[in-house]
């Protein structure tokens, strides 16, 4: 399952479904809204493009790390502290592939998938700066 959605997901069900033939390890990444003195977080995506990019990342991870299954669910909309933002479930024959595949996916998402977060505080709001400030303008230098 690769999705961008407002609803939460049943992680237990994803784990059960990840137990495919040949599976020896499952790694779950669950990114949650951290209590950074905020009230809520609002997430926005360029949905059509972001979904295609998540599908591409999943396929690359499957091939590069020999994964049996990949699920990526990125939530959008308004979320409270402690709620799930991003759930990645990967299964593989062995732990090394599962860990590396999961790490590959989260780093690829952070590097380029068009999704943004805005923190809502008691005093107002602020956009979360991206970790990779790699705009198109860089090429002019």
């Amino acid at each position: 399952m690769i999705a961008i959605q407002t609803a939460d997901v049943d992680i237990g069900q994803l784990i059960n479904e990840a137990k495919q033939r040949g599976t020896g390890a499952i790694v779950v990444f669950d990114g949650v809204v951290r209590d950074d003195d905020i009230r809520e977080m609002e997430l926005e995506a360029y949905e059509e493009v972001a979904l295609k990019e998540l599908e591409k990342i999943a396929e690359e991870a499957r091939t590069l790390h020999n994964l049996c299954s990949v699920d990526i669910i990125h939530r959008i909309g308004r979320l409270s502290v402690g709620e799930n933002i991003l759930i990645i479930v990967v299964s593989a024959g062995h732990r090394k592939e599962a860990y590396e595949g999961s790490r590959f996916i989260i780093e690829a998402i952070k590097a380029g998938v068009p999704i943004w977060k805005k923190e809502l505080t008691k005093d107002g709001s602020r956009w979360v700066p991206g970790e990779h400030a790699h705009g198109s303008g860089r090429s002019k230098r």
């Binding site: 059509e48 295609k52 790699h134 198109s136 303008g137 090429s139 230098r141």
Partner: peptide, 21 residues
Amino acid sequence: GAFREFVILMKNGKRIDCANA
């Protein structure tokens, strides 16, 4: 009048460089 360094541009879902814009 140049694009700021951090600005990201896409055309029909594909990134394009500032130099090409």
